[in-house]
């Protein structure tokens, strides 16, 4: 059983005579047999209230954040051409015919040595990690920001290697003090490096002498080269830069 509860409120309104008269007109046509008051079959009062949505300022505010991401995307390079790095698809590249074949040959050359070694998959896996960090091309570890500030750079910058001589054919018993004694007469020495065996502490037979001045080094070469020391004849020459050695 369904119980229908209807609540009515009878309201009196003052209206113009004409309106009041019309209010008492008899119904006609399809509504002829309707009882007084609205016929629920034709007149439905919506249960939910529908108010006007004021949207003027709200919408403007809502629209802006919607547009922003799009604007960002526009500035970002979504598409990058593999041939000329332009802002378009590779197939649409204007240099496709000229640059394309050259790059292809280059790439096949690169791939060839990789394939037999079997290291290609490893490199492929490593590369994306690097690109994520650097946000661009693959950078070998030695060239990266953190790693690059290692010994090599600081040594190079602090020491001038132009006044360095290399002494070879030293006897095993040679000590740094001996070398200092030998070379001091030519000029002030900045540093002496004697290569030694880690375990025994004996000389490995060669040493580097850093002079402060290049002239001193030149005189040392002239003076000591071919000089018999202990039972060996010393060989003295300009030290080659460390990178090429």
């Amino acid at each position: 059983m369904v119980k229908i509860v209807k609540t009515y409120k009878v309201e009196k309104r003052r209206a113009a005579k004409t309106i009041a008269r019309r209010k008492n007109w008899r119904k006609f046509g399809a509504a002829e047999n309707d009882p007084p008051g609205p016929n629920p079959a034709n007149t439905i009062v919506q249960v939910e209230e529908i108010n006007i949505q004021i949207i003027l300022n709200k919408e403007n505010k809502n629209q802006e954040p919607e547009e922003d991401p799009l604007a960002k995307l526009k500035t970002q390079k979504l598409v990058s051409c593999r041939i000329c790095k332009g802002d378009h698809w590779t197939t649409k590249c204007p240099y496709k015919d000229t640059l394309g074949p050259i790059q292809e040959t280059l790439e096949t050359d690169k791939k060839k040595p990789e394939e037999p070694s079997g290291g290609a998959p490893v490199q492929a896996a490593a590369a994306p990690v690097a690109t994520n960090k650097q946000g661009g091309k693959y950078v070998p570890p030695s060239m990266r920001d953190g790693a690059a500030k290692g010994r090599g750079e600081t040594m190079k910058s602090s020491r001038d290697e132009s006044a360095t001589i290399r002494v070879t054919n030293l006897s095993e018993d040679t000590r740094e003090s001996d070398l200092q004694e030998l070379f001091r007469p030519f000029g002030p020495i900045q540093r002496i490096y004697l290569a030694k065996d880690k375990n025994t502490g004996q000389s490995k037979g060669f040493a580097f002498i850093n002079f402060h001045r290049r002239e001193d080094a030149a005189r040392a070469i002239a003076g000591v080269s071919g000089f018999g020391y202990d039972h060996l004849i010393l060989n003295v020459e300009w030290a080659k830069p460390s990178g090429t050695a």
Binding site: Y8, A41, T43, N51
Partner: peptide, 16 residues
């Protein structure tokens, strides 16, 4: 006679 509670609610005329 009319329902004043419902005056703000839209009235649907379904005669067509």
């Amino acid at each position: 006679m009319c329902d004043l509670n419902e005056i703000l609610k839209p009235i649907l005329l379904h005669g067509h």
